[in-house]
Each structure stands twice: as structure tokens, then as C-alpha cells.
Design a protein around this nucleic acid. Structure first.
Lengths: 328, 328
DNA sequence: TATTCTCTGTCAAGCGATTGACATATTTGT
DNA sequence: ACAAATATGTCAATCGCTTGACAGAGAATA
């Protein structure tokens, strides 16, 4: 049988109430008793049943994190950073990999509610805004407008688009393409395109795009990129809306004997540690993963502490950084 | 206020007991009442409080997954596969990223116990075997001998080492190196080296190794590899104990003008989708991630269903597959 | 000495559900 | 028509812990 409060009380030679008081730091307790109780707890390796505590009204200290697949290195690093912060503060993370499955996301949402999580960090884009309204839980969102009651944290995608494109223009590119996800309204990622478009226009150049679905297979994407490069169109610079696409492009270019950066310059987006480590030549726009995680978590704590409090800010736009490298 | 059983009862016009009976499928219930209750639940969007249910004796349907960092694509894919299976069966995953921090792992272990998880999947290597004995919880381990009471699931690392090395030998290599993690006793990963060593010996060749710490920085690792390649030693084949190392080696070789595979052949290990997609030229030994996840989960379910049941097998060795590619 | 503070204990209610015992209808089957 | 099976309700205990009310003892303060 699992140990309970009364076992500790017996061991420490005091009443269960006293043990509870020690644990909850409630009422008058002498240092001597306190020590005796802690000693007993240690000796028995006792852990209070969090279920019972939470049922009684205490926080569960459990946070639901809903994200697209962590097989994408960017989300893996973001989730890892979030997890690390949560753990440091005694929170537990229920990781909900929603993928592209809106039913799964919906199931997860209900599940999190049923499990009385203290709050939710939502980074998936499968469900409509309405579905998130139903739940009276503290929510913070990553990269997604949910409602004006839900703070949104995101990288400055527009600035990133500008920085990347400007770098290409500065490097002398006259035919700069945008390669990436199709524009989806409400998805802040599309701001990367806006930054690109504005910068290209300001430089007196034309907007050229080649979009492909985010979740399309890499092989299919590679084929598309190959076609783009062999289409005969004049291209000397490409801003890819994510690093993985940039890597594919880089590979295809090399296979075709196109020299990077001499003939073609490439800038990616995301700047994960993984890509920085294993494709160090790639120029990219680095999202501030630790800051994103820190902000998300901090805001969530505030919401948990006082769910009614009006938000100082609804939207948090964190600055990105251009990493110049060999591909530009 | 959150809804409770009595709210549903009121809405459905029946007693709380009846509602509970519907939910738990217990006792006699007419189809008509059943429908009415379900309708009321749907209408109110009611979710039974899992805390209360579990406190009362029901399973929490929560599984703790302790793994090294998911920033490593292999673990990310493994965790994603585990998560997917768990979710499909109505389980929730508490993800515990233990990294290399034994204190964190210890904290997580206690936390999982306090949260009454139904079981644990452990893939971290920071804690001694003893620390896992304390907990009377169903545990299944990945890649780690914990005790003969804990089933261990792992890829056939030895076979992988053999396959990789044999491929290099067959391709005509006469000086085959092993590059990878230092041998750690009790770590099944070291079996990769054993496979390498035996195969090299069988071919009448000599064992050569260049080991570096798993968690060393990639930059430092790259330097080491560069030194190895420029040391003047005769090397025409390398078996890397993981793909990331193989990628670094590949890059360093190319930078040095060493042609792969003409001058140097390389085989990696892990074969994640990510690496297959973005470094498709790399020959590697593919770990069967979906099978690993499936086996881990299945075994855990068995342990949960009957923790006392003697294990049919303590150890599950899943076959790996050699992926021949351009680097060999 | 009287008063206040500190410490500890007993007792009981409550968190939201499950489940057994028991009673009472209503519906079947024969 | 009568027993059996089915359907529902009431009531209370329980899961493990928290917390308030209350009492009494010892220590410190006025």
C-alpha cells in the first residue's frame, strides 16, 4: 500500500493534522516538530498524494502544452525550453502533440480540462478560435491569435522577413524569391512573407514566390525546388520561410552545380541549435527560443495567479536575429 | 464554477448515482436514461473530474516518459511515436526531459510517484539502478538495464554494428574506424561497438576507435574529427555510433576535399526520418522507432494490467535495418 | 497573577467522484 | 397473476488530504 499522511504522523509521533500543517506551513508549528515530521517523511520516502491535494483545492501544478509535432526541430527545441522552465518551478508538463489533426487537438483540450491543469500553452493551429473560448482556463498562445483574452507570443516574423530579404538585396541579389508555406490568414508566420514583400518592393524588385505546403513530404518539396531551379527563371536569392526548406534548396542547388553563394544566395528561418550545429553554413533568421519559452511561461504564471487581471499587452513580439553565414 | 456530476444529474432529471452509473457502465441502466444522461453531458460539455475519479481508485491514465533531451532528433521521434500510441489509447503523457541531470531525473521520479501515474517509460541513463527499485510502479525501460524486474526494449545494437561494419568491409575498406561514444558499461549502446569489433576482427582487420562524449558540443566534436582526418592515419571507412556524428564527419571530409565515398566511406546509426529526409545520402543503420515505441507501450500496458505477472521475456531486441546510400 | 501567545491535538466537513446496500417501481416471462 | 429481471433512487462510506473550529497545555509577557 502506498504511504499516507497517517503513516507519517505515526512515525513522527504526532497527529495527521500536525503533519498536514507542516506540509502546508499552516498554523503554529514548533521547529522541533517540523524537523521530526520532515525526518519521518524522508525516512519513509513519503510523497503527498497530489490527486487528493488538488481535489481539495490546491493547484495541480500541471500545464498542458499543445504543439505541432516535436519531430520538427524548432518545436522540439521550444518544447524542451518550456519544459525546462516549468520543471524548475515545480510544474509538470503534459505534452500534447496535436500534429495536423484537429480531432486530436480537440480531444486533448477536453482531456486537459478534465485533468484540471492549471493552464495551457497552445501552439497548434488546427482548431478555430471558438473552440478555445469554451474553456475557462488560463491560456497563452504561441504564434497564433486566439482571442483578445489570450496573450500571444511570437517572434517578430515581419522583422525577420525584412532582415533576411535585405541581406539578400545587400548582397547584390536582383531576383529574390520567397519559398515557403502558403499564406494562411491568422497565422503570424505569414508575416514573414509580408516582410519579404515590403523589402523587395522597397528595393525596387519584384515579388516572386514558390509556395508549398508545410506538411508536404520533403521529397516532394525537393522535387518542386529542383523544378524551380531548372525552370530557367532568373533567381539569385531565395528567402525560405523555414530552415528545413532552405536545407533542401541548398542540396538541390549543389546537385545542379549551382554555386552557393556565388550563383545563388539563401537565407532560412528558425535558426535552431540543431541546424546551426549541423548546417553551420546556412544563413538564417534566428528565433529567440529561450525568450519565447520564457515569455510564454511567465505570462502563463501571471494568468494563473490572477485569471481576471486585464492584460497589460495582448501581443508579445520578440526580436529575431539575422545570422550571416556562407550561404549569403 | 466547474460543472460536476450533480449538475448533469439535474439537467438529465435523474440522480447523481445514475449519472455515475452511466459513466462507469455499472448496474442496470435503460437505454433511454443512458441517452438522456449523455445528452446532458454533451450539452453542458461536462468532463468528469479525473482527480476525483482517480482518488477514488480509478487509473489516472497518465504515463511518465523520462527521456534524454528531445532536442536530439532520435529521441524526439521516439517520444512522438510513444505519445501517439498513448493518446490513441486514452493515455496522457507527462514528458520528463531528464537531460544529463541526475537530480532532475530524481525529482521527476518522485513527482511521477506523487502524481500517481499508472506507469513509467524510462530512457534516461543518469540514475543508478537502485533508484528505480524504490518505486513500486510499472516501469519499462528503453536502452537500459534497470533490473530483471524491468523489461528492457532496445534495438539490436550489436547487429547494427555488424551490419554497418560489414557494409564498409564489403565496400572494400581496409581501415575501418569506430567513432562514437565512450563505452559505458550497462549501456546497451556500447553493443554497437562490439558488433563493429567482432566484424572487423572476422575480416582480419584492426580495431581503431576515436571516441568522444555524447554530449560534447558539436563544434568540439567536429574539431576532433578534423584532427582525425588530417592525422595522416590511413582511414577509408568509418562507422559512427550516431547519425549526427556521421554528419559532422561527412562535412569535415568534404571540407578537406576527401571524396565520399571514393576515398572515405561512412555509415551512421539511428536513421531518423529527419536525417533520412535532409541528409538522404547518408548510409545508416535504422532503428525501428515505431516498433520500439509500440513495444514499450504494449509492455507497459501489460505491466499495468498485472504488475505481479512474471515477465515472459526480460529483454526485447528489435531488429535494425541497414540503409545503403551514397556514403558507402 | 492574570493575560496573551504559541504549540499540539481532536473532531468534522468538504473536495468530486465511485460503489455497495437497500428500497421501490416498472417491465418481462411463464 | 406471480416471480424474476430490470431500472432507478436514497443513503452512506470511502479515496487522501486540507482546513477551520475548538480545547487544553505550556511558555512568555505585562
Amino acid at each position: 500500500m502506498r504511504l499516507k499522511l497517517t503513516d507519517v504522523a505515526e512515525k513522527a509521533g504526532c497527529s495527521p493534522t500536525t503533519v498536514s500543517r507542516v506540509i502546508n506551513n499552516y498554523g503554529y508549528i514548533s521547529q522541533k516538530t517540523r524537523d521530526r515530521v520532515y525526518a519521518a517523511m524522508r525516512e519513509l520516502n513519503y510523497q503527498p498524494n497530489t490527486l487528493a491535494r488538488s481535489l481539495q483545492g490546491k493547484r495541480t501544478k500541471m500545464i498542458g502544452v499543445i504543439m505541432p509535432s516535436i519531430t520538427n526541430p524548432f518545436f522540439a527545441e521550444l518544447v524542451a525550453a518550456i519544459e525546462d522552465k516549468l520543471e524548475a518551478d515545480g510544474y509538470k508538463m503534459l505534452l500534447c502533440d496535436a500534429g495536423q489533426d484537429s480531432n486530436k487537438e480537440r480531444r486533448y483540450l477536453r482531456m486537459l480540462e478534465a485533468n484540471q491543469v492549471d493552464g495551457i500553452i497552445a501552439g497548434s493551429h488546427n482548431l478555430g478560435i471558438e473552440e478555445y473560448q469554451l474553456y475557462g482556463l488560463p491560456i497563452v498562445s504561441f504564434d497564433r491569435d486566439l482571442s483578445d483574452q489570450v496573450p500571444i507570443v511570437t517572434s517578430d516574423n515581419y522583422q525577420g522577413g525584412c532582415l533576411a530579404t535585405q541581406a539578400l538585396v545587400d548582397a547584390g541579389c536582383g531576383h529574390v524569391y520567397f519559398v515557403g508555406n502558403p499564406v494562411k490568414t491568422g497565422n503570424p508566420t505569414s508575416r514573414r512573407f509580408d516582410g519579404y514583400a515590403d523589402t523587395v518592393a522597397a528595393a525596387g524588385l519584384t515579388v516572386h514566390t514558390a509556395r508549398s505546403a508545410f506538411y508536404e513530404s520533403p521529397a516532394a518539396k525537393a522535387r518542386e525546388l529542383r523544378e524551380l531551379l531548372t525552370s530557367g527563371r532568373k533567381i539569385d536569392g531565395v528567402f525560405c520561410s523555414d530552415d528545413l526548406t532552405a536545407i533542401l534548396l541548398l542540396k538541390e542547388a549543389r546537385k545542379l552545380g549551382i554555386r552557393v553563394p556565388e550563383d545563388l544566395k539563401i537565407v532560412g528561418f528558425d535558426g535552431t541549435q540543431l541546424v546551426q550545429n549541423y548546417v553551420p553554413e546556412l544563413a538564417t533568421v534566428v528565433q529567440p527560443v529561450p525568450d519565447l519559452a520564457g515569455t510564454l511561461v511567465k505570462l502563463l504564471y501571471e494568468r494563473i495567479a490572477d485569471p481576471e487581471k486585464k492584460l497589460a499587452q495582448n501581443s508579445y513580439l520578440l526580436p529575431v536575429k539575422l545570422l550571416r553565414n556562407q550561404t549569403v
